[in-house]
């Protein structure tokens, strides 16, 4: 169980996340929606502590995540994997090494420095890549892959961390609909099969409705909606998105509307052995 208590983050004179209090029960798949600049991205970065909160608490069990430092902070980041809109892979390293960087926290310092990986780590990375259908690219450079393939490698890196929580910051905003569907299907199967809590920032409403157990709507740094997809009325959604409503509801934009077509893509995620 992850609890946020009056979490606030200020940048100079703007408040990006304001007084957010939320509970994330284990194993939930949560979608965070809102227009650009609503504070979704800042919220996720606070959870993984890539940003430090200005006020408030992040509680995981009895641990106050907001106060962690040094090795404990890195332990939390390793428990709480993150994937990004721009994938944030190391383009000039091969795919396998990119995935194995997910093990950095657990590795002894000298092995991390010398880039020496054990057979177990290599096998784990291949298993993770295989789950996303990317094992055949293991020895290619990450930068030679397409956007959708890179995002799948990024998910494999997150899986290699053996995380308890997976944060996804606009994971499909840079992808075409087919790849967007593959990525979202992978996230859902990771959530269902491994019981990992997934918190996912989404710009498009229909994707959130299709994939998430629970939707959180943000506006100007505040949580303005928290409920099931069924509870999210069209009026409510229009209020959350404001002027960007047309774009967000437009199903042909970056969305996973292919989901309604069962033949569009084979299920990309196989159950882990």
């Amino acid at each position: 169980m992850l609890k946020l208590d009056q979490l606030t983050r200020r940048f100079k004179d703007t408040v990006a996340v304001s007084d957010v209090t939320l509970d994330f029960p284990d194993g939930q798949m949560v979608g965070v929606i809102g227009r650009s600049g609503a504070g979704k991205s800042t919220l996720l970065r606070l959870l993984n502590r890539l940003l430090d909160p200005s006020e408030g608490q992040i509680l995981f069990g009895d641990n106050d995540i907001a106060r962690l430092k040094g090795r404990e902070l890195r332990a939390w980041r390793s428990d709480c994997a993150m994937i990004f809109q721009q994938f944030n892979l190391v383009g000039r390293l091969d795919v396998l090494t990119n995935v194995m960087t997910g093990r950095l926290f657990e590795m002894p310092g000298w092995r991390a420095m010398a880039q020496v990986f054990t057979a177990e780590e290599r096998a784990l990375a291949i298993q993770a890549l295989d789950r996303l259908g990317m094992a055949h690219t293991a020895l290619q450079r990450a930068e030679t892959l397409s956007g959708g393939q890179q995002q799948r490698v990024a998910i494999a890196r997150a899986l290699a961390q053996r995380p308890r929580i997976l944060l996804a910051d606009e994971p499909i905003a840079s992808l075409d609909p087919l790849n967007a569907k593959i990525v979202m299907d992978s996230l859902r199967s990771i959530n269902r099969e491994d019981g990992i809590t997934v918190v996912c920032n989404l710009h498009t409403l229909d994707t959130a409705r299709d994939y998430c157990d629970r939707i959180i709507g943000m506006q100007a740094g505040r949580v303005v909606f928290d409920g099931t997809p069924a509870q999210l009325t069209a009026g409510m959604a229009r209020e959350i998105y404001g002027a960007e409503a047309e774009e967000a509801f437009n199903e042909s934009a970056t969305s996973t509307s292919l989901a309604s077509d069962p033949d569009a893509a084979a299920a990309p995620v196989r159950a882990s052995a």
């Binding site: 993984n48 890539l50 994997a81 190391v90 383009g91 997910g102 950095l104 890196r157």
Partner: peptide
């Protein structure tokens, strides 16, 4: 800085962020 952020998010130290995130780019 994107690869660096990626390594930071996995729990890598500053040295690891430089070694894995920056060095391959600048070699």
């Amino acid at each position: 800085s994107r690869p660096v952020e990626g390594i930071a998010a996995t729990g890598g130290t500053w040295v690891q962020q430089m070694l894995y995130g920056v060095v391959p780019q600048v070699t």
